[in-house]
Design a protein around this nucleic acid. Structure first.
Length: 857
RNA sequence: GGAUGCUUAGCUCAGCGGGAGAGCAUCGCCCUUACAAGGCGGGGGUCGCAGGUUCGAAACCUGCAGCAUCCACCA
């Protein structure tokens, strides 16, 4: 027997181990159709947060649902080495011990990082277990394992051979703390308040002065020219002359180019080819030298003269002072502008000229665009996110893939010690003759291969044959560019197939005020705390059923409480059914022998199954669960379960009612189970005929032979009567259980209705008669009901009048609608018929109420 | 500058072409033998604004406003 109250802690204990040991997570049943997905691999940087819960629980629901639907489901688990992020964490840890990575050297440092990986990998495993992920551990992968490394080498070398990877000197985003290049999307732009310095440049051989504005005075040592727009009347005559750089006294040519925006600043712009991407482009056009003035930690080099060795900001400060002292500072303005920060270290990135490896994106992106125009494309849920992907593909720039880190896939490029020539090779070259490139690849380079490399690619493995392309991928909109887009282009380029047929994009979870959860705000919520308070099932239910696909959601204690209450409700309804079953062994339902309310609940259940299934297929978990929720509360618990107490008391009907109760409650458990597997298993096990695990069960099937529209109508009518009379009592200030006398007109909606009225309206008397007595009357088409009270005639008349008034309103509406030729001609037939029926019912009701009013007068 | 989303009850959000819904909050009544973390019954909304399409608009179209996010630019 179940306990009176649902206790998540007791329910959750031991279940995961049982599933895991029972082999329920392992794929491979060849008699079934395959269905596959890969987990979005969490970074081994720390423990899981609510974002991971959002990434994985929808997958888990899909996995459990698809298993019940008879698929051979493979869910590949794994983790990401997360190059920069992990290395930054390990370095931070070492720094606290006063050690730098250079003190350790590459090999020792990597050892330390593997230790870190082991520790955090274990934590992540624990947490997967805690939240109940049905992942196939026999297929677990890591982005740095030998298989993935092999795939990475294969991809790098092939792209190189195809001319799609090249090495080039370009302006890249440099993180001066982590001392590595970053790709464009690893740079976060935010509006910072800065200063706009207006400096005076003396024009050579002239008395004229040119005022040039800059936000970055320290880069003036790398300037090669000053540009003005040739159409700018103020300056056109200066083109061809020279002016003096106030930072170092060097003469700079004044040049004309339409690139310059006349309206911005003073209309005169300095050009720093080695430290600004736009200036770099200009320099290519005019063949300027590329002068670097900053080193890899963003300190000034010898070109900065007396500022040599200073940090960029220190240099800026003293340089400005010196220029001011020389009389070349015009003024300084406050200026809010967008500044790039490193996603990982947070420091202001330095655009810097550097030799890096790049992936040539255009051909890869074009393939994706073509694929998305074909029938065999990746389908997005919700569809609008396809536009996000295509926009990126259309605008994409070459991808800088080299990182000056140690933790990652080392670039398989080698330099001839004598000639310096580059050789890219799948196998290591002789270290006597060659030095391997020191850099590693961007983490996303390996993540991009995740769906096929985890299944064995480039080998032709059985898993790859059977499970690729994967069926679906679920992830947040924030990593569409980082990850989704890259998996798509790599997969299409290398496997000639999409990596997954469908992508579900979810929003982000925010704090209760709608702010992003972040360390600095201290508003993060630890899933483990939530689980301790409400249980995993409530967390899972909350997170998957309280948001619209693709939109953000807010964390809410109230909703977790509500989820927990709902589960308690289901728990108790199962408990009630088990109490009524006792030793009885339910059997197949004899539908024909069922009473109207049994037919009602069976029919309602079928429609619920149908709705839930169709929403599940579209991954609309909020809609699926709310259909089930409505059924559980409104149809079952609040209504049928109560009503069944009447029929259960009749020995002739009791067994049949028990069959129905068992079937309904079992269906509810099976449908809630993918959302809340722990309580699902617990309740399932407590029911008769349980298999060793609910994971062996199949999903409830829609049974057309259990559908009865007339029975639903009868049930709804009884519900309406109960509500009316209860409402009446409440209006009259009577207690819900105040006794009443009820009189019914002969044409009752179904036989035996009096038993329900007696019990649930606390009627001390229910009588049928041709004439309804003096009292309050309720009319339901051709059926009427009266309550015998010592009534206040005036009050009763007022109430009747009010009801009549609203009926008139309703009838007028119906008549207007049905009198509209446009409506009759264009509206669907069913709609017209429904309106006609409603109208005639209202008319009958009106007639009855009017007759009643007349009687009272 | 470009794109996308949001604006519906006090709060958080569904609904997205046929009479405004849920959870929480609120009010009233009830310890009725599954559940008081409960039951029953209420109250509460010119669905951001303005036009348009339609027999019919919260829903579709156009414009506007506010909020949010992303991309690009910012000498």
């Amino acid at each position: 027997m179940l306990e009176k109250h649902y206790d998540p802690k007791k329910v959750e204990e031991g279940k995961y181990a049982k599933w895991k040991e029972g082999g329920y997570f392992t794929a491979g049943d060849k008699s079934k159709q395959p269905f596959s997905l890969v987990i979005p691999p969490p970074n081994v940087t720390g423990k899981l947060h609510l974002g991971h819960v959002m990434d994985t629980i929808p997958d888990d629901i899909i996995v459990r649902y698809k298993k019940m639907k008879g698929f051979d489901v493979l869910w590949v688990p794994g983790m990401d080495h997360a190059g920069i992020a992990t290395q930054a964490k390990v370095e931070e840890k070492l720094r606290k011990q006063g050690i730098s990575r250079y003190d350790l050297g590459r090999e020792k440092f990597l050892e330390k990082t593997w230790e870190w990986k082991k520790e955090y990998g274990d934590t992540i495993h624990d947490q997967w277990e805690k939240i109940g992920l049905a992942v196939d551990y026999s297929r677990e992968r890591f982005t740095l394992d030998p298989g993935l490394s092999n795939a990475v080498k294969e991809v790098f070398c092939t792209l190189y051979e195809q001319g799609l990877i090249y090495q080039g000197e370009r302006i890249i985003n440099w993180d001066p703390v982590l001392k590595t290049a970053l790709s464009n999307i690893e740079v976060i732009h935010q509006d910072d308040e800065g200063e706009f310095f207006y400096f005076i440049y003396d024009v050579v051989d002239s008395n004229e002065k040119l005022i040039v504005a800059t936000t970055r005075p320290e880069t003036m040592f790398g300037d090669t020219a000053v540009f003005v727009n040739p159409k700018d009347k103020r300056y056109a005559h200066l083109i061809g002359k020279k002016c003096i750089n106030p930072a170092n006294g060097e003469p700079l040519p004044i040049m004309g180019d339409e690139y310059v925006d006349i309206t911005f600043g003073t209309g005169a712009m300095k050009c720093t080819p080695a430290h600004d991407p736009n200036d770099f482009a200009l320099s290519k056009k005019y063949g300027f030298p590329l002068i670097k003035v900053l080193d890899e930690s963003a300190h000034m080099n010898e070109l900065a003269g007396k500022y040599n060795g200073m940090d960029r900001y220190e240099c800026r400060k003293s340089l400005v002072e010196d220029i001011k002292a020389s009389g070349h500072l015009d003024h300084i303005e406050k200026f809010v502008h967008s500044v790039g920060h490193s996603e990982r270290s947070g420091v202001v990135v330095e655009p810097m000229l550097s030799k890096q490896w790049f992936v040539k994106m255009k051909p890869l992106a074009e393939r994706v665009i073509a694929q998305q125009n074909s029938k065999d494309k990746v389908e997005f849920f919700p569809p609008r996110f396809e536009k996000t992907l295509l926009r990126w593909m259309n605008e994409v720039e070459d991808w800088c893939v080299s990182r000056q880190l140690w933790w990652g896939h080392r670039i398989p490029a080698y330099y001839d010690k004598k000639t310096g020539e580059v050789v890219v090779s799948r196998t290591p070259l002789d270290p006597e003759k060659y030095d391997q490139d020191e850099d590693v690849l961007d983490t996303w380079f390996s993540s991009a291969l995740w769906p096929f490399a985890t299944l064995g690619w480039p080998e032709k493995t059985p898993d790859y044959d059977r499970y690729f392309p994967t069926s679906v991928l679920n992830t947040g909109y924030d990593i569409i560019f980082f990850w989704v887009s890259r998996m798509i282009f790599q997969s299409e380029h290398f496997t000639d197939q999409v990596p997954f047929r469908q992508v579900i994009i979810h929003g982000l979870i925010r704090d209760p005020k709608g702010r992003k959860m972040s360390k600095s705000l201290g508003n993060g919520v630890d899933p483990i705390d939530v689980i301790a308070e409400y249980g995993v099932d409530a967390l899972r239910y909350f997170i998957t059923t309280n948001s619209t696909p693709g939109l953000d959601m807010r964390y809410s204690d109230e909703k977790l409480q509500a989820a927990s209450n709902y589960l308690n409700k289901i728990w108790n309804s199962v408990r009630y059914v088990e109490m009524t079953l006792g030793d009885y062994q339910p059997k197949e339902i004899d539908f024909k022998a069922c009473g109207p309310l049994e037919k009602f609940i069976l029919s309602r259940l079928q429609k619920t199954i149908k709705t839930v299934e169709s929403k599940m297929e579209k991954y609309q978990f909020a809609n699926a669960s709310s259909a089930l929720y409505d059924f559980v509360y409104d149809d079952f618990c609040s209504f049928y379960l109560e009503m069944s107490k009447v029929t259960l008391a009749d020995p002739a009907q009791a067994d049949l009612v028990k069959d129905v109760l068992y079937y309904v409650v079992r269906s509810i458990v099976l449908m809630i189970y993918p959302y809340t597997p722990f309580i699902g298993e617990e309740l399932y096990q407590s029911l008769p005929f349980a298999k060793p695990s609910i994971m062996e069960e199949s999903y409830p099937e829609y049974r057309k032979d259990f559908v009865s529209n007339p029975a639903e109508k009868q049930g709804n009518l009884l519900r309406e009567i109960l509500r009316d009379v209860r409402g009446y009592k409440s209006d009259q200030g009577l207690a819900p259980n105040a006794p009443v006398e009820i009189y019914l007109s002969p044409k009752a909606p179904f036989q035996g209705i009096e038993d329900y009225l007696t019990r649930f309206l606390f009627a001390k008397k229910v009588e049928f008669g041709k004439e309804l007595p003096q009292g309050d009357v309720f009319s339901y088409g051709d059926f009427g009901l009266a309550l015998k009270q010592d009534i206040d005639v005036e009050e009763a008349k007022a109430k009747l009048s009010k009801e009549i008034e609203t009926l008139h309103f309703e009838i007028a509406r119906g008549e207007k609608m049905l009198g509209n030729p446009g409506f009759l001609a264009k509206a669907p037939k069913e709609k017209v018929a429904a309106e006609e029926e409603k109208l005639s019912a209202n008319k009958a009701k009106l007639a009855a109420l009017e007759a009643r009013l007349k009687e009272l007068n």
